[in-house]
Design a protein around this nucleic acid. Structure first.
Lengths: 155, 155
DNA sequence: ATCCTTTTTTAGAATAGTTCTTGATCTAAA
DNA sequence: TTTAGATCAAGAACTATTCTAAAAAAGGAT
């Protein structure tokens, strides 16, 4: 079937830069959405915010597509979906294991790196036999900046 | 107007069992909702599930009221609202600091006690100046039971 | 290139969970 | 008993998200 010189998926995996999407296509839309997360403010935008930013680069893109792309990117592990309470999901391209700090003052989300052997030092004890696939650590409070501004204002 | 023997809010605070609602009224509806969480399966029901159970005790109660009551109870700290991803919020009356384990197989939520000096042993490091009001630890995976049943099934 | 098949995109409808609105009801105090 | 405020009930409204169906795009095979 395949001609001798035909490139296969395996070939391109070797010759091309690794596709963060795996076997799925890196379409224009997916690239735009991914780039918005990678290039811009790295501020954990919601889907709607990604949509607004993506439109600047590709005015024809639709909200449904942004949702699709974010879903795909999340699914293949290229970005992470961050949920704080029941607010709109936010997305970030930080693939390191990390926690999130949500400032209830400025409403921003900050990444908090998790130390290496996280499991070894957790302040909880899993029942034996439990298998953890995914750990989610979120804090709410005041970020250093807002915390400082508050104490200034009090003077 | 008031007769000498009239009880005031302050009086009853001393003579009556402490009202978990603080100054707010412990109405029939609030009591039913609270009791549903306290008495029944302690299985982290959603608002709709609480509604169904509450109706058994008070058929006239409305869903909106259940939401109101849950909100009030959460607000005064009598129950905790548990969010896993973007699924419907669940509610639990466990006031000890604890994490949640969500089994992706049986869809149940389990409480995982947090060790005492949680702060001392966290696998993360907060930026100096950050103030944490609330810590949220959620795990997803397979609970011991489902994990075991899977290995049985494989035989 | 052209056809064929599959994937992806688009726009809008639909959905789920939750919140809001309004008027009725209850409660506690005066 | 009256009154003011709190609470409740029913349903409408809202928001974030998912679904649907049809059009467009992307590859590969011919």
């Amino acid at each position: 079937m395949a001609k001798e010189m035909t490139t296969t998926a395996e070939d391109s995996a070797v010759t091309n830069p690794p596709n963060p999407l795996g076997d799925l296509r890196m379409t224009k839309q997916r690239k735009v959405v991914y780039d918005v997360l990678m290039d811009e403010q790295r501020d954990h935008p919601t889907a709607s915010e990604v949509f607004i930013r993506a439109k600047e680069r590709m005015p024809s893109i639709s909200l449904a597509t942004v949702y699709n792309c974010l879903e795909t990117l999340t699914h293949v592990g290229a970005v992470k979906q961050v949920n704080v309470d029941r607010e709109a999901s936010r997305f970030c391209p930080n693939l390191q294991p990390h926690a999130h700090f949500f400032c209830s003052e400025c409403q921003e989300v900050f990444d908090i790196d998790l130390k290496k052997q996280a499991e070894a030092t957790t302040p909880w004890q899993l029942p034996s036999g439990a298998e953890v696939d995914h750990l989610d650590v979120t804090m709410r409070g005041k970020c250093p900046t807002c915390s400082e501004e508050n104490s200034k204002a009090a003077l």
